[in-house]
Simulated scan of single mutants.
Amino acid sequence: MYPDVGGPFQSLQEAQSVIDGHLEDRRVPKMCMKQAKVSQVEMAIRTCLYFPDGTRKRCSKSAATEKSRDEKRRFVQALVDNHNNDHNLFGDTVYELKDVLQYYAICENHRVYYHFNFTAKTKGADDFDRGTDNLFFAEVKNMRQGEEHEELLVTCFCMVKPIDNGHCYGCKNHGRVNMKHPNEVNAFTGGHLDICMPMTLKTEWSDEEGGSRGG
C-alpha cells in the first residue's frame, strides 16, 4: 500500500526528505528548469499544471472523487497502523481498517483539525463478532509551522457507539450531523468553538479531455 522508501526514520523531516527524493527520481526533463531551459516563471506554471512525472493535473470528476476517497483511506490506514504500533498490537489483536464513513476538516484558532469516522475490526474476531465492525472516531491536528514544516498530531483515536452524540460545533455548523464524536467533551480538541468558517477546496476537473473546467 505504501511505496518502499526505506526506514525506519528518526524524524518527520528525515522521512519527508526521503519521500521528496523518491518523487524527484520520477521527475521528467520538462519538469526540471535547467534541463528544460525555461524561465522560473514558466517552471512555476508547469509545476501548477503537471505532476513531477509530467502527468497533467486534471482528471474526470469521477476519477477525482475516487482519488480523494483513496487518499482519505490511505490516511486513515496510516492512523490505524500507527495505533497498532503504539499499543504493541500484533497477530489476532491487530485492527484492520474496513470503511471510511465520514470526514471533515475544521479551521479553529488558526489550526486545522481533521475528524474521521471509520470502521475496523481485529483479525482474531470470532464468528460472533465477525459480522459487526467497530466504529471509531479519530481527530488529527495539523501543526503547520511556516511554509516548509508540517506535522500531523493524532489528538484522539477511540471507539464510539452509533448512539454517541458528542457535541462538535465544527461538524454541526457545516452540516456534518452524521459524524459520531465521543460523548466525553475533553476527548477531542477541535470543534468546541461556535464559529462558522467556510473551508473551501477548489479542484479542477473535466468530464472529457479538453472540456470545460469547474472550481
Rank of each mutant, 00 (worst) to 15 (best):
M1R: 05
Y2T: 10
P8S: 02
F9V: 04
S11V: 09
H22W: 15
D25G: 07
D25L: 11
K30I: 15
A36D: 11
E42D: 07
E42V: 09
M43F: 01
L49A: 14
G54H: 08
T55E: 10
T55N: 08
R56F: 07
R56T: 15
K57P: 02
K61R: 13
S62F: 05
E66V: 09
S68R: 11
V76A: 01
A78L: 05
V80A: 03
N85K: 10
L89R: 07
D92N: 12
V94R: 06
L97D: 13
K98A: 11
Y104T: 08
Y104C: 13
Y104K: 09
I106W: 01
F116W: 06
N117M: 01
R130E: 13
D133K: 09
D133E: 11
F136W: 04
K141W: 00
R144L: 03
Q145W: 00
E151M: 06
E151D: 13
T155C: 02
T155V: 03
C156H: 00
V160P: 01
N165K: 15
Y169W: 13
G170P: 02
C171R: 00
C171V: 06
K172N: 11
N173V: 07
G175Q: 05
V177N: 11
N178Y: 07
N178S: 08
P182N: 14
N183R: 12
E184H: 11
E184P: 06
N186L: 09
K202E: 11
S206V: 05
G211A: 15
S212T: 06
R213D: 09
